[in-house]
Design a protein around this nucleic acid. Structure first.
Length: 511
RNA sequence: GGUCCGUUCGUCUAGUGGUUAGGACGCCGGGUUUUCAUCCCGGUAACAGGGGUUCGACUCCCCUACGGACUGCCA
């Protein structure tokens, strides 16, 4: 069996959206499962749609996701170049083969003439609206022009395209790993442009030539390519490569969380979640589209969430490392129908990964944000706090909000909590606690010791736990939630603890 | 309009002729906790509709409906 080689082939027309990332991921998982190669090929045959920075964005995104490329522009490889605009000569050579064996022909119709043809066909309510053997007789091409006319036009430098000559009435059976067999008659296909007037191939030609030349064994791509699969199969046959044809798998689409249709760039802003892995700034408009990374997602969580949109492992465990995914991934088990993206579940995945992450690693990720808000904070302190608040976080970006009281004295007190927890006799109770804590020697100011002392005090005076501890929490944190109260005291220290109690007593007045 | 693909709880899905139709997210309820969160327990909720085939259909076939993709000198 040939070594598995798959490719992810985006075109650099803008940021990669999560559907594209999932396609890359499935390719990657498949390749690694069979110890194969994952190739990144840039499909930039449409110069008019080239967007500055998109290529780099794609590579950065894959890197962030942990999808490593085996062969590509940066990585090199024996099958380069990996950028289609640098392969022009190759396509010229191969289109000539098709021209020579009658599988392709010249056409000289202008865009206006093509528009007119389609419009006419539509008005006639014809079921045929394509450039094919039924309509090409009325157009300007090798079939309607003499050989001399054709060569004269070409020599005169007239623009032309090269179209595929779809064979007549041929039943084509294509096989898709996910969908099974699909049957189409060639009469339904149109004579697609293979080679454009700008001297570059279209996707159809380029992808067949490159996949063949690069030894691609499996083509895993989006469902939008399924309708052109028969054309691609015909192309392989015309080149005489049918025995080296890759296998195909067409992935279901990612749909909008609400309503209908496939997920689009705009949905993110509209519904408040990112559709891009990394933040993207449009070079033309300056418009910024948010990214998962910037929104506080962990790449491992992001990838895990994406992988399960359309595929499920055998057992019920949904939290999977990349290694586990590689081990369990089965392309034939990919769901056929489109998957609606769920921001809620994405959040849940992220939380799971944050909780699972070792505190030192988490602290390292949190450091830049903490530095910004609370400059000079020690990383070991962040590590300690992270351990205490992580199960209250959904995103990395939640940390500073959730843990602010570990870094600064509360400036205000949540009114709702004040109303609920602050009673008539609270100031007096807290004063007593203040005095109790004041006498605790510095070296004994630990969570465990404090808890024992305060609890002993409460019991001795026959007080109610909630009536003491809830307001104590309020003065220490400014709010009603958070980690173990005595852990907070130990973390902020004796001086700060006393200060906060004093401040609270002075500032909180029940309204 | 034409071609192709699809349709199981609100969402992601398991299921390949005989199941109390399973799990996860969400939601609701209970427990643990000084609080919030975590955690644990429980609950809610689905085979698009109609015809076949079969002793028996979520599973196979046909039709309809609905959804989607494609229909570019874009990928």
């Amino acid at each position: 069996m040939r070594k598995v080689r798959v490719r992810f082939a985006p075109s650099p027309t803008g940021p990669l959206h999560i559907g594209g990332v999932r396609t890359a991921l499935y390719n990657y998982l498949f390749a690694k499962k069979y110890n194969g190669d994952f190739i990144l090929r840039i499909e930039d045959t449409d110069q008019t749609r080239y967007v500055e920075g998109a290529e780099d964005y794609i590579m950065q995104s894959l890197k962030w996701c942990g999808i490593s490329v085996d062969e590509g522009i940066n990585e090199g490889g024996k099958y380069g170049p990996y950028k289609q605009s640098e392969r022009k000569d190759i396509y010229k050579k191969y289109i000539q083969i098709l021209l020579d064996n009658g599988s392709a022909y010249y056409a000289f119709d202008t865009p206006e003439e093509l528009d007119a043809m389609r419009k006419r066909l539509e008005e006639e309510k014809s079921s045929v609206r394509q450039y094919n053997r039924f309509t090409r007789g009325q157009m300007k091409n090798s079939f309607t022009l003499s050989e001399k006319e054709v060569s004269d036009k070409i020599n005169a430098g007239e623009p032309y395209v090269i179209r595929f000559n779809i064979p007549e009435n041929e039943n084509i059976t294509v096989k898709d790993i996910i969908r099974g067999e699909v049957n189409v008659n060639s009469s339904q296909l149109d004579d697609k442009v293979l080679f454009k007037s700008d001297g570059l191939p279209t996707y159809h030609l380029a992808n067949i030539v490159d996949d063949y030349l690069m030894g691609i064994t499996h083509v895993i791509r989006g469902e939008e390519w399924l309708p052109s699969l028969p054309l691609h199969v015909l192309l392989y046959k015309s080149f005489g490569w049918e025995n080296n044809m890759p296998e195909f798998a067409h992935l279901p689409l990612l749909l909008k969380p609400d309503g209908k249709g496939k997920l689009s760039k705009r949905d993110g802003d509209r519904l408040g979640f990112p559709v891009f892995p990394l933040e993207w700034k449009d070079p033309e408009t300056g418009e910024i589209a948010s990214g998962y990374r910037e929104n506080g997602y962990l790449p491992e969580a992001f990838i895990n969430m994406l992988a399960l949109l359309g595929w499920t492992p055998e057992d019920d465990n949904e939290i999977l490392s990349v290694e586990q995914m590689i081990k369990e991934f089965d392309i034939s088990k990919v769901h056929k129908a489109g998957a609606r993206f769920s921001p809620e579940k994405a959040k849940w995945f992220n939380k799971q990964y944050i909780i699972k992450m070792p505190n030192d690693k988490l602290a390292a990720l949190l450091l830049p944000e903490v530095e910004k808000k609370f400059p000079g904070t020690d990383i070991l302190y962040i590590e300690k706090v992270a351990g205490m608040v992580k199960e209250r976080m959904n995103f990395l970006s939640d940390f500073c909000d959730q843990a602010s009281f570990f870094f600064e004295t509360p400036e205000s007190y949540n009114p709702k909590v004040v109303k609920k927890r602050w009673k008539e006799d609270t100031p007096e109770t807290l004063s007593n606690i203040f005095n109790l804590l004041k006498d605790v020697p510095l070296h004994k100011f630990t969570s465990e010791y404090l808890e024992n002392s305060v609890k002993a005090y409460i019991e001795k005076n026959e007080l109610n736990f909630g009536k003491v501890l809830n307001p104590l929490r309020l003065v220490l944190t400014g709010t009603g939630g958070g980690p173990h109260l005595f852990d907070i005291m130990e973390a902020v220290g004796k001086e700060e603890t006393l200060l906060r109690i004093e401040k609270g007593i002075n500032e909180i007045k029940k309204t």
